[in-house]
Amino acid sequence: MNYQPENFQRDLPEDGSDFSDRLTVLLADRALGELTAEDAGELDALLKLPQSDDCEAFDRITAALELGLLVEPLEPLPDHLRQKVLAAAMREIAPANQPRVEAIPSQIPAATSRKSPPRSSGWFMRFAPTLAAAAILLIAFSLSFRPKVSPIAARQSLLDSAKDVVLLSWTATEDPAAHSASGDVAWSNSRQTGYMRFSGLRQNDPLLEQYQLWIFDPSQDARYPVDGGVFNIDRSTGEAIIPISASLHLTGPTLFAITIEKPGGVVVSDRKRLPLLAKVPSVSETKSKGQ
């Protein structure tokens, strides 16, 4: 929609006492969740104009009012959900003392173009320098406390020292994300520790989707496998090693499965996209192979 000054008056109240322009109308509608797609485009355009320095006022007012309308005492966050949120936070916040996903290029990777995050308003542009500075500080902070043991070394150490470690190759499905994927999963039940290794698994855009590991274990109903953590594949080439972050104690996994979910993962997967599987052979299967 072309922005014209007369449009400012389009939805203004007859008395015109408080609404000074179209921007106010759109910001009020946004704060109340009433913005249409067309209006959102118009608002985006208006927020790029110099006068758009008041763009979050109504959002804050409605937020404060919604808080003011809550009836206390509040029900606390359920324990199982708190644990989920906590685990996701540990993965998201680039913890200073815990390794995250580490990608090891097998060769110097070609330049890759990542999608820019969707920009919803001029707000992002205003804070971009601050965010960039904060990001640099966070990276510097994270690097200064970089763990001494990398996931590669930790995985190798597990393979070398854990007597009960199982090493399973991934089986790719027909999901396009797994077209060129290979790798394995190493798990030690005695140490409740494991690592996934991927090569060729398609890079994901964390703002759109994330990979999530599910672990089938005899202790759990097969309909509700154990969440093994959400992760990203940062590079389309090279090898990625990702520590397994099981949310529950496992008694003896029977199957590892990777699904593709919305950002942050899900509590129960619909399993619509399931690019990789790694099945633990049963005792009978192991015996028959040995014969």
Partner: peptide, 9 residues
């Protein structure tokens, strides 16, 4: 609704 928000402000 809009007037109300402006008045709140």
């Amino acid at each position: 609704a809009r007037r109300g928000l402006v008045r709140l402000r």
